[in-house]
């Protein structure tokens, strides 16, 4: 197990390296006159040139890249070119916010999606149609429309939740709940649809398995077989979808964070890419890629737990 994790981590590190190199190259190609951007319009050409030299922008790509990698390995991702805030500090404070959103959404999605999926698989007919309709709507309605709708109904009209802002979980749980509930709902709806239809499909598939009949022939009730055995077997594909959803949610959080004025990674991602703040963007790339790697390892371990065949001894 430990060897498996180590091996996957190593592969993840290589993956991180390749992905960050690619990203660096892309950003380098896309970068504009950053020194001018930083100093603003009133700076003189000399100041701009000096700033560029200070940031190492006059160095060739390979030198800058090697320099970046050298520091990154030691955990030093530099400081934002625009705010001088250390990249690590800028990201960690916001990462917690985004992760609390995304993890909350994933939990809600997994629970509700599974429940809906099982319901549809069992009842078929009307329930099936209901889940299908919800799926189609969740797929077709953009998340931001759902978000605005939720804000208007539950925050502005009913006053149950805060329309904007964010309270740290460590500060106050009710406060946290009053600020994250609507964003999580807005994010969940699309994801729930995906999970529900996946669970529905795999449950139906699994219910057709021979061993389901055999277990039932031993006197186990259909529900017992369903909740204990079928769900565990159907969990594998659903987990894979959940992993994809999790990564997708990191992107989806951007718009929701914007609408709810939540200080997560979203605003940083949009601003830093728009401004060409390479240290910050690279930090984001590494963090997201690392999350993807970790999530995939976790999913694989969970998958191994659900499916002994996939287990690595």
């Amino acid at each position: 197990m430990l060897r498996f994790i180590l091996r996957r981590l190593l592969a993840g590190v290589i993956l991180l390296f390749v992905a960050s190199s690619l990203a660096y190259l892309l950003l380098y190609l896309g970068a504009g006159d950053i020194a001018r951007q930083i100093l603003g319009v009133s700076a003189t050409q000399e100041q701009v040139a000096a700033k560029a030299a200070q940031l190492g922008l006059d160095q060739p790509l390979i030198v800058r890249y090697v320099d970046w990698v050298g520091h990154a390995i030691t955990g030093d991702f530099g400081a934002s070119w625009f705010t001088s805030q250390p990249v690590v500090a800028a990201i960690t404070s916001r990462l917690a916010v985004t992760l609390s959103l995304v993890i909350g959404t994933t939990v809600v999605t997994a629970l509700v999606g599974t429940a809906l999926g099982v319901w549809a698989a069992r009842k078929r007919g009307a329930a099936d149609r209901f889940v299908q309709i919800v799926s189609v709507l969740g797929f077709a309605i953009p998340g931001f429309l759902i978000a605005i709708f939720l804000v208007n109904v539950f925050a502005l009209n009913l006053g149950w939740f805060k329309p904007t802002g964010f309270v740290q979980l460590s500060t106050s749980f009710p406060g946290w709940l009053s600020t994250v509930t609507l964003p999580i709902l807005a994010l969940s709806i699309g994801a729930i649809a995906a999970i529900a239809s996946q669970v529905r499909g795999s449950v139906i598939d699994t219910m057709r398995q021979d061993w389901v009949r055999t277990l039932r022939s031993r006197g186990l009730s259909e529900n017992r077989v369903l909740y204990k055995h079928v769900l565990r077997n159907a969990g594998g594909p659903a987990l894979a979808v959940l992993a994809v959803q999790f990564v997708g949610l990191l992107g989806g959080a951007i718009i929701v964070e914007k609408i709810f004025a939540i200080p997560g990674l979203g605003p940083v991602a949009v601003d830093s890419t728009a401004r060409g703040d390479i240290p910050l963007v690279m930090g984001l790339v590494v963090v997201t890629a690392a999350i993807v790697v970790v999530v995939n390892i976790v999913i694989e371990i969970l998958h191994g737990f659900l499916n002994p065949k996939a287990r690595i001894s």
Partner: peptide, 16 residues
């Protein structure tokens, strides 16, 4: 690699 790179960042950078 394609999946580890944040799609939005790639799109934004590609657009630039």
């Amino acid at each position: 690699i394609i999946q580890a790179l944040p799609g939005i960042v790639v799109l934004l950078a590609a657009r630039a």
